[in-house]
Amino acid sequence: MIKRILKEPITHFLVLGSLLFAAWNYLAPSQESENNEYVIVVDQAKFDHLKTLWKAQWKHEPSNEDIAAILERHIRKEVFYREALTMGLDQSDEIIRTRLAQKMEAVASDLSNLMQLPSEQQLKEFHQARPELFTIAQSFAFEQVILTPQEAQEPKLSEIRAQLIANPNTLNSFENRRSVPNSWPLMPENTLKNAFGGTFVEQLAKQPTEQWVGPIESGFGLHLVKIANNTPEHLAPFSDIKDYVLEQYKYYAVIDSQQKMFETLLKKYRVRLEADTIPTEIEQEFAAL
């Protein structure tokens, strides 16, 4: 059980999160540690921290002028911040609420950025959990020739089919008609729909493999086709697309982490919708959360 919890990404978030906040508190000592609320101390730790922030942003050492600006900005902010707290301006202020909430959401994004690279096991689980990202649609590999309307009529049609069966080189005399290649390596149906138009792919799906069949119609005209490979829709094997899974994992980790953190944190709260004018179905939706 403990082991499973330790493996949960959200545990990583939370552990990392508390580490972050601990580090933050260490680097930026809180107000309570000050004896006098009207003293603003910039000790070495604080100054180094401010400088680190600045350097992370601007990628070089601050000049003396920059240091003056850094200190001025910090002190100004501190003065106004403390005065505002004294006046109780933080209480029920919509902007501050919004900013704090946004900040917490951003923390969630950052946590996913700071996380260690996912383990192979985690990537495998992601691969299984998000099949829509890794499914390869039904795919076909085939050869095709485009026929003129005359060639699509019997007896010419049967003649051409017989020639194609008897001699594969016959294909050359139909080379690149309409600029469409004769040989198509394995391609997913969406690519083929866009490349051929009409109902070509729907008809292709109904044909047997390894024999010349048709004519079937596309946006370009009538075709004889010989399907070499008809692969049904399937989840791409993890080992074939590991790098791609990692790429997608990283991208979605940022997006998903906010939602996951929200869902986790929400569990700490009971939400009571007491207003009378909330529509019942919406009330039920929220009750199900």
């Binding site: 951003a106 700071l114 996380m115």
Partner: peptide, 19 residues
């Protein structure tokens, strides 16, 4: 999502940035 917070910048130097 907003990628960089003050906190992450502070710690970017001490934690390996995985990505």
């Amino acid at each position: 999502s907003l990628i960089s917070t003050t906190i992450s910048i502070a710690l970017a130097c001490s934690l390996p940035l995985a990505f």
